[in-house]
Design a protein around this nucleic acid. Structure first.
Ligand SMILES: [Zn+2]
Ligand SMILES: [Zn+2]
Ligand SMILES: [Zn+2]
Ligand SMILES: [Zn+2]
Lengths: 121, 121
DNA sequence: AACAAGAATGAAAATGATTGTCATTTTCAG
DNA sequence: CTGAAAATGACAATCATTTTCATTCTTGTT
């Protein structure tokens, strides 16, 4: 991994959870790191190839990245104000693995999100 | 559903499996149906809102659509070929309601998807 | 140090899916 | 028929991502 790769990874570790390439870039610029958006994209591609980060997709199709081995969790999101609570997956972790195994899938991952309206709204 | 919505749905049913908006449009034009790409996008959005079609994402982020039954269910999707199995949520239905209730959320919904690589790939 | 080869960088342009705009056409109730 | 409302589609705009390409850093060699 080269220097910019290390800085990207460090930023991704500090923001916690998922972040898009543009968000990572904004965070680095805000923190005084000098880096171009192109380099962020290239660095992320390299980190993916090295299996250091994961890539997923937001609902709108934007790519989001996270450090592999980050603590796995899920979200409970308010549809009105966006307030978000991080929650444990509990039994759905087992569910995902069992269903995938039942149909012969490997390299299994999953996404799950609960949405509703929070008590403040 | 309006006329173009029905034609889009009919096309999507005939191609089978997943198709992107652009693929659906190309198929319709090829088959002599006269429709604009914009209308295909709008029709698909309407069909999604009516829970008649599902939207997912290819690895490259392009949106793909497929006809979907009304009954609530989840998907097990192959990251490589897109093969999809409809599965029951099982225990995660309870999990979603319990977590939401625990944090005082109402009008609760959820999404959950398992992805991996199927036995053919 | 001087030099060259190759990798890394980033600004700007290109790409491509999706969405927004708006003038025109179609539908339909009165 | 007539006007209002909905639907349509060509075109422009948006936005994430990729490509290009000229410039700058690295690194090893003489
Ligand atoms: Zn709220
Ligand atoms: Zn989980
Ligand atoms: Zn497959
Ligand atoms: Zn469910």
């Amino acid at each position: 991994m080269n220097k910019s790769g290390e800085r990207i990874l460090s930023t991704l570790e500090h923001v916690g959870g998922f972040a898009s390439a543009q968000e990572i870039h904004r965070a680095m610029v805000r923190d005084g790191k000098n880096i171009g958006l192109t380099t962020v994209y290239r660095g992320l591609q390299a980190l993916i190839k090295e299996n250091i980060v994961d890539i997923l997709r937001r609902d709108d199709g934007e790519a989001i990245y996270r450090v592999c081995g980050d603590a796995h969790h899920h979200h409970l999101v308010c549809k009105k104000c966006g307030r978000t609570v991080e929650i444990e997956g509990g039994e759905i972790e087992k569910w995902a693995l069992q269903e995938a195994a039942h149909y012969g899938f490997r390299e299994v991952g999953h996404s799950a999100e609960i949405f509703g309206i929070c008590s403040n709204c």
